[in-house]
Structures are given as structure tokens and as C-alpha cells.
């Protein structure tokens, strides 16, 4: 791998762009391709086989790395999908516990809170902080299908606009901290803004799996367990434990 390809792979990850690294086996000739199969870094010495762009685009579409035979050559198509992202609304105590736990399972974490007294690097070491209003922040970050959005502020001024944007996005997870009563009143408010039942049903609240969490770290664990369950399509994603 050339340092140029390595730099571009890292850059693609930071920009949340998918890239496919095609490696010819066993000699290691490489071509870096975009999601649509167009070559970003064509190899200087290896001719790109005819079928490579289309095959790479297909691997990109289902996000599965695979080994393929093109002509008489064996190629490994390594799909580098952007890491799943956790967008947390509210630089609150639970968020402080959630950020490092989420990073540990490979989520890229951004905490959003316009209240600069809460969103400080002292409270969130190593975490990306955005001190815009949640709707502005989410608009500028963009919510893709690799994103989970969790609101933690309990303040409708901050939580509601964020949830409205999340429900209008392909986010794979949308959760809102708050009791059943809070969820009910929020649902009424958001229904009044014209959101449909199907959209409102996407909000997971009470948030997290019902593990009897007490205190911020356990609530964070409960939220993270649910995010993993949803992402991995586990049975617990549907049987959350809050029923009855």
C-alpha cells in the first residue's frame, strides 16, 4: 500500500465517504475506487481489469468486502465504509458516560449542545463537540444511514428539533431520553407539528434496553446496548423490555 492510498483511505473515513481498495493477489497491485467504481488512485503499473469498476461498485452497494476473479486475476475488494456515528444531543452527565463507551465499540461520537458551559473539552476529553443549536448542527453534519441520534437534554427546545430532523433522515437509530410520561407529551407536541404515527414510532423512548439502569453510566450502557442490538439486527432490538 502506498502512503498516498493510506492517506486517502483515512481522508475518506473522516469525510464519511465509502471507498473500495482493490488489491490484486498475490502481487499486491492496488487501485483505490470510489463508491461508484471510479478509480481515485489508478495503479501506475497494473492495468485495471474491465470488470473492476462495476464489481467494486457492487461490493460498495452491499458494503461487503469480497474476493473476486476478474479475467484470470484474483482481486480482493476491501470495502471501507464510514464508521457508524453517534450524534448525542445534550452535553449532560449521561453523555459524558456514553461518549467513551460508544467509542469503545467503534462509534464515532459527536456531542451537540449550544450551552457552552456543558459542552466543554474538560467534560468531554477527546470527543468532538459542536456548540450550535441541535437543528443547525445536525443540518451541517448531515444524518446518514450510518448515524444514530440520541437526545438527552429533557428540554423540548433542544430535543424536539433534533428529533424532527432525525425522523426525516435515514438514521438507523433514533432515541430520546425520558420517562413514559415525557415520551407521551413529546409525542403529542410532535404530532401537532404534523409528524405521522409511523415517523413517531421510530423514536425509541424510554431510551435503551430495560436493564434496570441506575445512574448515568448504566443508562449509557443501556442506550449503547440498544444501538448495538439495532445495528446488528438482534432480537432484543424489538423486545426491549419496557413493555406492559
Amino acid at each position: 500500500m502506498t502512503p498516498d492510498i493510506l492517506a486517502r483511505l483515512i481522508e475518506a473515513k473522516e469525510r464519511r465517504q465509502l471507498a473500495v481498495l482493490a488489491t490484486r493477489l498475490p502481487d499486491g497491485a492496488q487501485v483505490l475506487l470510489r463508491q461508484d467504481g471510479e478509480a481515485l488512485v489508478p495503479d501506475a503499473t497494473a492495468a485495471v481489469p474491465n470488470g473492476l469498476p462495476a464489481t467494486a461498485a457492487s461490493a460498495a452497494a452491499d458494503e461487503r468486502s469480497r474476493q473476486v476473479v476478474l479475467g484470470a486475476e484474483s482481486w480482493f475488494l476491501h470495502v471501507h465504509a464510514p464508521p457508524p456515528r453517534l450524534l448525542v444531543i445534550g452535553a449532560v452527565h449521561v453523555a459524558q458516560a456514553l461518549a467513551p463507551l460508544a467509542r469503545a465499540v467503534g462509534l464515532s461520537v459527536t456531542v451537540i449542545d449550544p450551552r457552552r458551559g456543558f459542552a466543554t473539552s474538560e467534560r468531554f476529553p477527546g470527543t468532538e463537540l459542536v456548540t450550535l443549536w441541535p437543528d443547525e448542527a445536525l443540518r451541517s453534519l448531515g444524518i446518514d444511514r450510518h448515524s444514530a441520534v440520541v437526545t438527552l437534554t429533557h428540554d423540548p427546545k433542544l430535543d424536539d428539533p433534533a428529533l424532527a430532523l432525525a425522523l426525516d433522515s435515514p438514521a438507523f437509530y433514533v432515541g430520546a431520553l425520558g420517562s413514559r410520561k415525557t415520551q407521551g407529551t413529546r409525542r403529542e407536541r410532535m404530532r401537532a407539528t404534523g409528524l405521522g404515527e409511523a415517523a413517531l414510532d421510530r423514536v425509541r423512548g424510554p431510551v435503551g434496553l430495560a436493564i434496570g439502569a441506575v445512574g448515568a453510566p448504566e443508562i449509557a450502557l443501556s442506550i449503547l446496548a440498544e444501538i448495538v442490538a439495532v445495528r446488528r439486527n438482534a432480537a432484543l432490538a424489538a423486545r426491549r423490555g419496557w413493555e406492559e
Partner: peptide, 28 residues
């Protein structure tokens, strides 16, 4: 430019710490 990019990427804090590519870039 590639080396400069690598340095910046390796210095970035918000990427998961366990990405082998970031370590590779840093060591390089």
C-alpha cells in the same frame, strides 16, 4: 503532501483509537 496528510490524520482525536490504519499512518 501524502506525508503531511498522514500526520494530520494521525493527530486527529475523534477517530476510533483502534483503527489499525491510523496507527500505521502514525508509525510511518
Amino acid at each position: 503532501p501524502a506525508t503531511t496528510d498522514l500526520r494530520q490524520a494521525a493527530a486527529s482525536q475523534d477517530a476510533p483509537l483502534d483503527d489499525p490504519l491510523l496507527h500505521a499512518a502514525r508509525w510511518h
